[in-house]
Design a protein around this nucleic acid. Structure first.
Lengths: 188, 188
DNA sequence: CCGCCGGTGTGATCTATATCACTTTTTATT
DNA sequence: AATAAAAAGTGATATAGATCACACCGGCGG
């Protein structure tokens, strides 16, 4: 089986062995234990991360101490604090591991370098980002349109794998519902 | 004063006169009256649109008949049903003019053509989409974290111009709050 | 094998916001 | 200016979902 990152990129355009090796050389592998932080509020965010294995969550703690989940990421997904990453400022969110995790990290410098050297890879990033943009729009519409139960059902539909791997408490924090309310929804 | 689109693209990379003219030749201008539709639910969505003048809203009507606003767009912003546009499927939202509007329309074909011919323009689109992605993440966080009043205050901060140009009813539909509740918030 | 902790369920309340119904103000249109 | 249409305010009530409090279960670390 070929490298997961190669498979990922190949869904957009094929890469030759040489091209892929060159791309890969710009990434740094990193292993993290369960509960370990990948990004911590207040710190710099030098890298974007491609998940090879494991499961993470990006969370924001509101002034009154409640944790809301901005994003999950499992195998084949990208995750970082994009706001901080792009403007090279301090993180406003935390990212930590729900399971033991392996990622490939790509610095902003290397990412821009790759994008300017290889039109193909910039194309990949544009296509992936566009898809992400659409997914976020869908989530916003779901937050505006739908009640707790409907959002939960949509989540199960859209992310069956995550539904298996995540405790309901975290799904609730992602959907913007309290743990207790989600539990009571079980009268499906 | 140079062309608004040129100014827009130049915030990312400079374009020569020849380059810009070539890019511009792929767009089609369109004028719309107040209340006219740019995209209508159920129809094909051949184009993305850059706003030269005016103000539009992208809305979704929920099963129970309530109108929620996914996005506004004014001068210098892009708007379309991106989901439908990318997968060339039928629109699931409506986009209509709040004020008389002029846009430049770019077909998916021309957009991909430009992107493959001119690395520079693909770069522009990637950067703009990334910025949009971050903005949507912020909005999601605001929907998860903040109550009606806080969301309204954030909106005023972030979009002072829109706050002037829009009736409160529409701001309410964007924030996911009822018109009446927004009105009562006025005890700021 | 025990104790504890993360995850879950469930009752009793509380509250922000929705809804409905109506009035007043402002803005367009002929 | 006259009339209609859109926007905004406001009271009375209803409700989805939050919060608080507690009980239960199952795994795994000493």
């Amino acid at each position: 089986m070929s490298h997961l990152l190669r498979q990922h990129l190949s869904t957009i355009t094929p890469f030759s062995d040489a091209e892929f090796d060159y791309v890969l050389s710009h990434f740094t592998p990193k292993k993290l234990k369960k509960h370990q932080f990948l990004v911590q509020e207040g710190n710099a965010v030098p890298n974007d991360h491609f998940v090879l294995k494991g499961l993470l969550k990006a969370t924001h703690v509101s002034p009154d101490g409640k944790e809301h989940i901005l994003q999950f990421a499992m195998e084949d997904w990208w995750i970082t604090d994009y706001q901080a990453f792009h403007q090279q400022s301090a993180a406003t969110i935390n990212i930590d591991c729900i399971e033991a995790t392996e990622v490939l990290s790509l610095s902003l410098y290397n990412r821009e370098k790759l994008c300017s050297e290889l039109h193909k890879i910039e194309h990949c990033f544009r296509v992936k980002t566009s898809a992400g943009y659409v997914a976020l729009q869908r989530r916003i519409l779901s937050l505006l349109d739908s009640n707790a139960r409907e959002r939960y059902e949509q989540f199960i539909q859209q992310y069956p794998t995550l539904t298996q791997r995540l405790p309901k408490t975290l799904i609730a924090a992602y959907l913007g519902v309290s743990r207790e309310t989600l539990s009571r929804l079980y009268a499906l």
